[in-house]
Amino acid sequence: MPILEGEKVTKYFGGLAAVSKVDFNVDQGEVVGLIGPNGAGKTTLFNLISGAFVPKPGVIRFKGENITGSKPHQICRLGLSRTFQEVKIFANMPVMQNVLLGSLFGTPTGMASANAAKEAAELLDFVGLSAVGKTPAGGLTLANQKRVEVARALATKAELLLLDELMAGLNPTETAEAMELVTRIRGRGVTIFMIEHVMKAIMGVCDRIMVLHHGEKIADGTPKEIATSKTVIEVYLGE
């Protein structure tokens, strides 16, 4: 059963179609990858799904509900949460409060402070940041700042998590740890839709991969199908 569906999702910036008539769906419990060359429209698609932009035309449904035109905070409270390509944390606030904000404001019904704090502490532990809960988030390494974002997104009781280049800028060890984190998030029953450039990572953790090129979807299939697809290879390597 699809948790997320998009129909003919389109977004123009001036005369340029950043995303053009993309149909997509993500099933409950799946890990779906989104790849494509730079400027293919991957992050724009995430911005459309999370409500930062509104598709025109196009329809996006989450858990069967039409969320086209909903505000980011409303979409978040429905259980669809995201991280950012360029980390967007609250740099001067302690790590704990970064995560707490998600559990206080992002959950469907809202949470009492005590429960929210407990939830946030649990998630800090989950992403392995318990030791630095009181440190201002801006003082962490990039890999750990990305973990703060993941914890904050999960704190909103996300059912679908959009991960925008979780592994970009990480060293090989950190990349491996991030892959392991993705697997553990999936283990919590959270559906994942992720943009990634690190091929080894995306081939390893995804059930299915979608490929965008110049704003259009050019392929959709299992990692094996994608790796051997002629069109995909042409896009990445040239003819």
């Binding site: 980011p72 409270r77 950012f84 001067n92 992002g106």
Partner: peptide, 11 residues
């Protein structure tokens, strides 16, 4: 600190 992140965290 970061308005966009706040909005996407449910604020």
């Amino acid at each position: 600190q970061n308005e966009e992140a706040a909005a996407h965290s449910g604020v």
